[in-house]
Design a protein around this nucleic acid. Structure first.
Lengths: 209, 209
DNA sequence: GCATCCATTTGACAATCGTCAACTATTTTG
DNA sequence: CAAAATAGTTGACGATTGTCAAATGGATGC
């Protein structure tokens, strides 16, 4: 498996490249002009290929990533197997919240499952941002409220009674991922064997005719 | 099932009663004297009996509750059955984060599973707090980071391979609940039938001798 | 374009677990 | 205290799903 040495391109971002992130953040709480300048100065653009590990469990997470383009999953190692705990795509933020803030080793891994482009902010600059522009604590609070809800939705997904209900819930809540993510990651995310998911898909296809 | 009319005692809290909440919040980020005064003025003390619904799905959550004493669970109704999504005890905060902030109907229910005593702050006063004492956004951000981690832990719990692993994980992470919460809630929280949990417990007791 | 690799499908079978039912133990309440 | 309600245990059985194995399909690279 590729390690984070494969984060093969990293450079300062250009102001013209950060629009989608600013839009996403503004949606939660308006950013001041000064904050936008700060992002323009501190954000870096990172490109990586499919399979690259952005974060490895045991390491300390150094960045919060905004996915400009691509697909990323989180997973943990449990009894020799991967368990995919989330999958997320373009225009979303990803990081290990706990590791980033407390500078402790992360439990989870993060991996690109498509070639990706990120805007990344280091934990150092994020912390400086909280101090220099206290209003950003409001933005972060609202972001966390939003992502807390996402975490609850994922927990609900795997609590569904059987494979069919889980996949239905997946289609209702993550339809944008269903034709983009390999079945092995979806099945792991749903907590079922990939063979089972294959059978569920077949059953749904034939019964819907 | 008892409704929230059973929240049978509610009165202004006394300063001497709010210590544990202040201590808990200070742990995340120090509160100023003014903020503590604010809590002293706005917190209410709520008592309710076992089984009381603090929040019913479809209603808008009006309070954030600090559990001074007691035990509370969150659950959703799914296909005629309850699914317990969290269980929490003394000295923890509970609310529907999403419903409280956005003033939209909650999806989940909250229910006391012991006689309880809460310190409660209304959403109106919480929002005023964010405005009047912007530093409280830092506290809230850190609280949310902490509770996000809890949500991930719960998701991990139900992703474990089988009933034995789930119960082991439960004992490691929620040992304070194992002898206090009825088996039907624990089993639902673990995503297994209560009969299965009964058998797991027996097997562990006999194999440990 | 062929060979290799990886993703997905399909089948067979066994393990795990949920459901139903009966029973026992414990708690609550009048 | 007795009766009733609630909580927990145990057994039998079937449904769902995971595992292993083999086959097929598609993508990638030389």
């Amino acid at each position: 498996m590729k390690s984070n040495r494969d984060i093969n391109k990293i450079r300062k971002s250009r102001p013209s490249e950060i629009g989608p992130l600013i839009t996403a953040l503004n949606f939660f709480h308006p950013l001041s002009e000064e904050m936008i300048r700060y992002f323009e100065q501190k954000l870096v653009l990172i490109k990586c290929t499919k399979q690259t590990l952005l974060l490895q469990s045991g390491d300390i997470c150094k960045y919060i990533y905004f996915i400009k383009k691509g697909l990323v999953r989180g997973f943990i190692k449990e009894g020799g197997k991967d368990i995919t705990t989330w999958i997320t795509a373009d225009n979303e933020l990803v990081t290990s919240i706990h590791s980033l803030d407390l500078e402790v080793p992360a439990l989870e891994n993060m991996q690109a499952i498509e070639d990706c482009e990120f805007l990344a902010l280091s934990s150092r600059h994020l912390k400086q941002l909280y101090i220099q522009y206290p209003d950003f604590n409001i933005t972060a609070r609202k972001l966390l409220q939003h992502y807390y809800r996402d975490a609850e939705r994922r927990a609900l997904l795997i609590r569904h009674a059987n494979a069919v209900f889980k996949y239905h819930f997946f289609l209702e809540n993550y339809s944008h991922l269903s034709n983009r993510v390999p079945i092995k990651y979806i099945s792991s995310f749903l907590g079922i064997a990939f063979e089972t998911l294959s059978r569920v898909r077949k059953k749904m296809a034939t019964s819907a005719k």
